[in-house]
Nucleic acid binder design. Structure first.
Lengths: 137, 137
DNA sequence: CCTTGACCTTCCCGTCACTGGAAGGTCCAT
DNA sequence: ATGGACCTTCCAGTGACGGGAAGGTCAAGG
């Protein structure tokens, strides 16, 4: 299989596939003409990587997951710990975005959005916070 | 004011302040010794930028917001449109993260997380999707 | 006057996971 | 021989900084 076919079958861009080889996630064979010669095994790995990336795992997490996948002596606890860590990271990001969203939605709601310059959004961004109180003592 | 004081009062790292100057968001004066000489106005802008960035606006959005803030003939509709666009982007990110989260949480829940190798998380990542049906016709 | 140490400066590289594009080799059909 | 669709490598850029080196400046203390 050449890279274009693997790209179509894995759903990953050719550029990404070359990049994954460069960082050692896959090691396709080479034909005599220098072209990459992908086996089913490489395609399978790429599909695995595509799904892991779609779940938001970092490349390094993917590397670990791939290693665990290929290690028949793994303990599922290792996989679960990695996934749980990622889940927490996702939750933290969601919380942060929801906090932003709440503030921003409030400001948007208060802005008339007409042809006048008065704008609570800008007013809020420009707010000078009162100087912090000196530490007690 | 030197950069360190501005950093403390704005809450932005010195590196970030230098970067903001480099990309033209602020233009502090220079003292005879080459040190940046910040005015209250620069500090005010930096605080504005810090708050806009905390709401997740991109640097380019911040540039626009700053320009609108300083333009007394602006229409609040411009600000609101920008903020609403950003709100939609945030919503899209939240939705994507929640989708990831749902899938991942389901997998984590099904994984025993013990000393055995069996792992529904890896099984799912390794799933070979059935070949797509050829297009009708 | 000298030293120490806390500042300040610029410059360059690294991050993360790719993406775009240039320059050039290969293959296959005409 | 030619064209076009492949393939290759290499280099540069993305966003928004952060780390760190090499070197200039300033104020205090001895």
């Amino acid at each position: 299989m050449n890279i274009n076919e693997v790209s179509k079958r894995s759903g990953l861009p050719s550029k990404t596939i070359r990049y994954y080889e460069e960082i050692g996630l896959i090691t396709p064979l080479r034909a005599a003409n220098g072209y990459r010669a992908f086996r089913e095994r490489d395609l399978h790995k790429l599909a695995f990587l595509g799904r892991a990336r779609a779940l938001g795992f970092t490349i390094e997490d993917c590397r670990t997951l791939l290693a665990l996948y290929e290690d028949s002596t793994r303990e599922s606890a290792q996989v679960k710990a990695l996934a749980e860590g990622h889940l927490q990271a996702i939750d933290a990001k969601i919380a942060q975005l929801q906090s932003m969203r709440a503030t921003l939605a409030h400001l948007v709601h208060r802005c008339a959005g007409d042809d006048r310059p008065d704008c609570p959004i800008l007013d809020d961004l420009a707010l000078v916070p009162p100087p912090a109180a000196p530490p007690a003592g």
